[in-house]
Design a protein around this nucleic acid. Structure first.
Lengths: 205, 205
DNA sequence: CATTGTTTCTAACAATCGTTTGGTAGAGTA
DNA sequence: TACTCTACCAAACGATTGTTAGAAACAATG
């Protein structure tokens, strides 16, 4: 590795780190105030700079939210795919997916909130077609796990599968809207109780 | 009742009906595109008129969403209060509240979606203080029902109450985001299956 | 110290926003 | 027919939006 190479590499690394910093600030504002309602001046303010200066780092406001969402989704699907590839039973897969989801919420809370609030709107644009595609895979994945569970006789068969899917999907992801990583309960414990609630219900015995 | 009186009354009624029509159109657009991202010209377009003409009927874009939300919330709480006043057991109260919630979703789908998506942002303004107040009452109501259920030994006691509350709240209300009144399952059947899932879990036996 | 490349600021731009104003078409009344 | 009131249109308002261009500040290099 030549010195020239190392310099240009560390420069690129510093640049990438700055981008990540700015995206972190942007994600916070987008998540708390909504993407459409957020101005680039507010994002810049949160990052300690002026509105126009953001355009040295990013092409547009749209490309910021694009990078925020695609980074999160790439990581999330990598985690899901690891679970799906490990040949677990339906019930174990279910639990592992929920646990992985909460780990995602823990790690990418802002991105998850943005994804939930804005994906329907953003998805209409061709640039964000991967959002709809992600939701399709999501549905496919959960339905497959749930169907397998019903087949194996581990999940009850008297409920509408589509309803079951929405129930699971929603109960897991809405947690992002109230979850705080510094809260009373750690992510793992929340996941455990969630799984218990969904699997066994809230009735006593 | 004098003729003059009747005329002014029917005029007022026609006026109110037109307002309701326009608010219906506005609610649809607000719900599907988001309040902040929606322009008054889009609302007017959906109502078959020009942007400025809306201001003959309403003070502002804000007052439209205000009327949409407050109408829905008033009706919802009237329904909840009827349930709470009828001296049911914890479990019966639980079921009745869920059923009533789904009836609200059925009747005020757009308003519910707007409430969920925008109440956090709108609530910061003094004008929409009633949104935060409604959420406070909501929390109080569900916690009281759940606590009573745990006391009576009908709900399990090994779960965090706050988590339980969020779980119930979220599972019920996110249904508004996908529910269609003309869908495969009627509102009552959805409510029934939801109650079964939450109470008994999704495991077989 | 001079020079270069990187990052931010200053200051504006065209477009679009919510909103206002003044006018007008049409129905109802005398 | 003349007048009035209701409901809308046409056209603009100032403010704010995302974005851009050129200059200034800064750090690093020679």
């Amino acid at each position: 590795m030549s010195p020239r190479r190392r310099d240009s590499e560390s420069a690129a690394a510093a640049r990438a780190e700055r981008r990540a910093e700015l995206l972190g600030a942007a994600a916070k504002v987008f998540a708390s105030r909504g993407y459409a309602a957020t101005t680039v001046r507010e994002v810049a303010d949160a990052a300690g700079m002026l509105g126009g200066s953001l355009y040295y780092h990013f092409d547009s406001k749209e490309s910021m939210v694009d990078e925020i969402l695609s980074t999160f989704l790439t990581d999330m699907w990598a985690a899901y795919d690891r679970v799906l590839a490990s040949d677990l039973s339906a019930r174990e897969t279910f639990q592992a997916l929920v646990a992985e989801s909460f780990r995602c919420i823990d790690r990418y809370r802002e991105a998850v909130v943005i994804y939930q609030n804005e994906s329907k709107l953003l998805g209409e644009s061709p640039r964000f077609a991967y959002l709809a595609e992600s939701q399709r895979r999501f549905r496919e994945m959960w339905l497959s796990v749930l169907d397998r569970g019903v087949m194996d006789g581990v999940f009850r068969a008297d409920l509408d599968t589509g309803l079951l899917y929405r129930f699971v999907r929603d109960t897991v992801w809405v947690a992002a809207s109230w979850y705080r990583s510094d809260g009373r309960l750690p992510a793992g414990e929340i996941a455990r109780q969630y799984v218990a609630m969904v699997l066994e219900g809230i009735l006593k015995d």
